[in-house]
Each structure stands twice: as C-alpha cells, then as structure tokens.
Amino acid sequence: MKINNKKLTHLKKLEAESIHIMREVVAEFDNPGMLYSVGKDSSVMLHLAQKAFFPAPPPFPLAHVDTTWKFKEMIAFRDRRAKEVGMELFVHINQEGKDMGVSPFTHGSAMHTDIMKTQGLRQALDKYQFDAVFGGARRDEEKSRAKERIYSFRDKNHRWDPKNQRPELWDTYNGRHQKGESIRVFPLSNWTELDIWQYIYLENIKIPDLYFAKERPVVEYGGTKIMVDDDRMPEELRKTAKMEKVRFRTLGCYPLTGAVASNAETLPEIIQEMLLTKVSERQGRLIDHDESGSMEKKKIEGYF
C-alpha cells in the first residue's frame, strides 16, 4: 500500500491501530496467546501480528479449539500456517465431549457448540493460563459485538459482564487484572467485512480454499446447504449429496456452516459478490439464529 502526503488511508489507519494493540498486549501481559480459528479474520490477525513484531516472529503461541468437526482442509491449513510463520501451535479438544461422542447431527447445534466450543475454550484457557487472548471478532458482525471493548475483561470464570465494562479511552488500554482474571483482546474491532477482504487482497494473505467457489458435494440440512466433509454425516443424508458450485462465507464446524451457491473464484469476485449480496455474513452460521440476543447470552457464558 502506498503512503501519500502524510495521510493514511483508512486501511493503513486500521492496520496501525491493530498493531498498536498487539504490541501493547505483548509489552504488558505475562502470557498472551492468540486464538486462531483458521478463518479469514484469523488470517488477517496473524498477518498483522507478523507485521507488528517483524523481523521477530510474533512472541506468543497460537491456540486452536478443535471441535473435531472442522473442515479437514481447515486443519491442514492451520498446521501449515503455524509452521510457516514459526509460531507454536496449541490444539485443545474437549476430551470429555469427544468421549461422549458429541455430534452436531445427533445433539443439535446448541449443545454441540456449548460442549465442544464454549466449554472447550474454557478448558483451553484454564490449561494454558493465558492472561490475554487475542480474538478476531469484529464489531460489525453482530449486535452484542458492537458494544464490546477492544480489551474485554473476563472474570475468573471467563464471564463477560456487558453492563459493567471498563471505560476505554483513546488508545490507552487498561490491561490490569488479578491472578486468574483475563482480558480478551480484539485487534480487529474496527474492521468491517469489506476491510478484511480488501486487506487480504492487497496484502496477498493466504486463506483456505473453502472461501473460493468450487464444485463440492452438498446436502440440504437445517434450511441450508452443508458440505459432505466426512462419513460421520448420517448416511441417509449423505445419500442425498449433489455436486454444486459453492463457497463458504465463514468457516466453522462443517455441519453448522452453510454453503452459498457462487461462481466467485478470485478475491475480487468474492468481494464483488459480498457487496452485491443482500444477506449478512453470519446468516451462514447456524448458531446465532436460535433466538435474538443469543450471541449476548453465549458471550456472557464465556464464548468468544
């Protein structure tokens, strides 16, 4: 990106803000970690971390909460990226949930998400004892996110108290906490979906292929199309699979991630499609729709 007349474009301003946040965390916390979810936002966050500490690798580990139901391609991408960047990668699976055989198909999205994702995340945070955790959430994603601070305080039980957030002024962040408490840090708070895509395009950031349209085997499930990623999908459902040209606007657990019919095979095409579409990004996610205010509730319980 070019720099003209001592004025930064909005993307350069956002980049500077995110880097400022990351450096501040590394300077002030004992044991920060980055929650890496493999998606496009995580990819941007990782790229910014590289830039913030270059020529050193980012001085903290990546952590991934593996629900065991992520797309296979996401897992391969995750392992490859961590190696390339030279960062340590911690992977946590809720073993209890795995032993119980928790599945989005049999237990439903709410229970699966609660056990494998929310509880899995809490276990991971207890295990790794991070005092600050970077997350890739953006304020434009969802209503309760719009009110979250960049430094979001969590008590010993990882709970968020929306009515009692610390005032956050200028770029002066208060990261002080007692032992056991922690701060979730959202360096991408002020980025929008378009900013993320544009930055990926300009900076040539690697993202999983699942974002690009391709012929993939999909089935109708829960009012949307999902991809057949392995044979844990019930057989009667798998039998209905058809090859369709689809892509994903967000990435998560494959049974909970709706595919959209698309011809977008390049980044400009993806951006074009995104701008012309009339449906917001989170629609593809089955977990927010249970009831209004459901994200607020999940966040209070410790969800990211």
């Binding site: 719009a146 009110k147 205010g293």
Partner: peptide, 18 residues
Amino acid sequence: GLQSEREQGITIDVAYRF
C-alpha cells in the same frame, strides 16, 4: 443491541457502527 437495553428502551453503552 443488548437485551438488557431493549427491555429498558434506552441505550446504556457505546455501540460502534460502520
């Protein structure tokens, strides 16, 4: 945004829009 705000019909905290 927040459920608690809707119940009271007022805005409590800063919300960011784009």
